[in-house]
Computed example of a mutant assay.
Amino acid sequence: MKYHTMKENRRRWLRAIWPLIAVLSHQSECAAKGGTGGSVIEHHPSSYWEQPFSQPYFDNSTKRETTTTVGQSAYLYCRVRNLGDRAVSWIRKRDLHILTVGILTYTNDQRFQAMHSDGSDEWTLKITSPQVRDSGTYECQVSTEPKISQAYKLSVVVSKAKIVGNAELYIKSGSDINLTCIVLQTPEPPSFIYWYRGDHVINYSQRGGISVVTEKQTRTSRLLISRALPADSGNYTCAPSTAESASVLVHVLNGEHPAAMQHGNSSNSGAATRTLALLLLFLHAGSFAR
């Protein structure tokens, strides 16, 4: 009975310190590989670890490439079958920094967290509020001897909204304001797209003739204000849930075009006048030649 108790205590002790052994072993390997003229000490596995039925392996059904937007939590899913008493670690490839071992975080950056449910084969690395600098390769590593690992690629992009057309819009009173917003570089459709005039969400009940049509799959939203009045002038903003907003300045004018447009028209008129003068001069010269 005493022999069995000692054996069970030893087994529990090994299970408790195994994650720490995995961390120290990884660091030793990195130091040995980084040195010049150094050698790596080989640790021969015991007969138990060599048995084929006890060897862990990766389930490759999980996605290996993930794209997310800045600020939106990212999840990397690693599924390991037949793990046994081994530990699963997440390593950042660019600097070989150990992020997590088991469910423990081994970095001061608390945005990184390991998620695992008892009895599950899945070990998930969660990155809260990711930034563009977090893009790169991450390794899911299992503390077998030799170690096995699988790489996962994370891309963190900046999602932006774009309103089709110029940044400033001039329309006549009585015409329609028709604005189309497109959300660019977003892996998932935004959960909502709000339209603002100034600092306030456009109030559909304030006046009739306002409609918004949003198509999540195409990541577009269209704002239509029929029979616009000068009071409808202002800065209109398209604000998706997971992207930077975009704005356009709308001028609703009574009658005449603005001075900028008049200047453009006068420039065109002046060019036409100069062309006509050159043509008359050419014809006049031709009459003298005869």
Results as ranks from 00 to 15, higher is better:
64 R>G: 13
31 A>Y: 11
194 Y>R: 15
63 K>Y: 10
278 L>C: 04
54 S>I: 12
38 G>P: 10
136 G>A: 01
252 V>Y: 06
214 T>A: 06
57 Y>P: 00
2 K>A: 15
57 Y>S: 03
228 A>V: 04
227 R>K: 12
110 Q>S: 14
211 S>C: 03
20 L>F: 04
175 S>E: 00
265 N>W: 12
244 E>V: 07
225 I>P: 05
58 F>R: 06
105 T>K: 11
98 I>T: 06
278 L>N: 05
80 V>R: 04
65 E>G: 00
61 S>M: 00
60 N>D: 06
237 T>N: 14
200 H>M: 10
217 Q>T: 15
102 G>R: 09
173 S>E: 09
188 E>M: 01
229 L>P: 01
44 H>R: 15
35 G>R: 08
20 L>W: 06
200 H>F: 15
164 V>G: 01
241 S>A: 02
142 V>I: 04
69 T>I: 10
107 T>H: 06
199 D>P: 14
200 H>G: 13
83 L>D: 08
252 V>L: 03
66 T>V: 05
103 I>E: 06
130 P>G: 08
261 M>K: 08
151 A>L: 11
192 F>W: 13
40 V>L: 12
168 E>T: 03
254 N>T: 05
167 A>C: 05
289 A>P: 14
272 A>L: 11
179 L>A: 12
100 T>M: 00
19 P>L: 03
40 V>C: 10
154 L>T: 00
124 T>F: 09
69 T>Y: 03
207 R>D: 10
288 F>R: 08
108 N>L: 14
100 T>P: 09
228 A>D: 04
153 K>R: 07
260 A>V: 10
71 G>E: 08
74 A>G: 11
91 I>V: 09
17 I>Q: 02
188 E>G: 04
14 L>K: 04
198 G>Y: 04
244 E>W: 09
64 R>A: 09
